[in-house]
Amino acid sequence: MLTFLLLITDEQKSELVEKLYIEYHEDMIRLAKYKLRKAKMHNVSYNAEDAVQSALLKITQYIDTFDFEAHRSETKPYILAIVSNEVNKIVSEYVYWEDLDDHIDLIDKEQFFEELHIRDRYDQVIDVMKNMSDIYGITLLLYFCEERSPKEIAEIMDVPEKTVYTRIARGRALLLSKLKEEGIK
């Protein structure tokens, strides 16, 4: 416990943590409960509290490296993504997702942006991403939006670093695959 408290020594950081807690705690708990109940988990309240506690711990650990004030519009999805990840860990859902996308060809970063054509299909990209598994959405959020290193993402998501690389690559490939399906429809 002392180790965690020592992470917050600066008064400004403490105020920021408190501000985030007051603003987002309710939504964090409600989202956690919602996802756990949807996953038909038992002990929803207890597990939701567990997920939120773990999420807040992660948020406070990385609070130095994210300018919440400058990026207010990113704060809520970031925080709820962390909570979602903690819920996923409890549900152990992620364990079963790693093998499902083996048939997808992985592509490199530059090729991804060339094929994405985001200017032409921005709204479709949003629609597809909304329906993608949380593990890819969260990984891509942390990688592209928060600009975290794979090592940091591995620590935040509590997975091996190699898994993060795989998820980034698979997330990109899956997005392109789904966009192609939507295009055909």
Partner: peptide, 28 residues
Amino acid sequence: LFKSAILEALSQKYEQELAECREDAKCS
């Protein structure tokens, strides 16, 4: 643009889930 799309997608996703959510925020 891709960064904006990710943020927008996750924002919409979580807001939709919160809107559907009937859970309270009571804690022990």
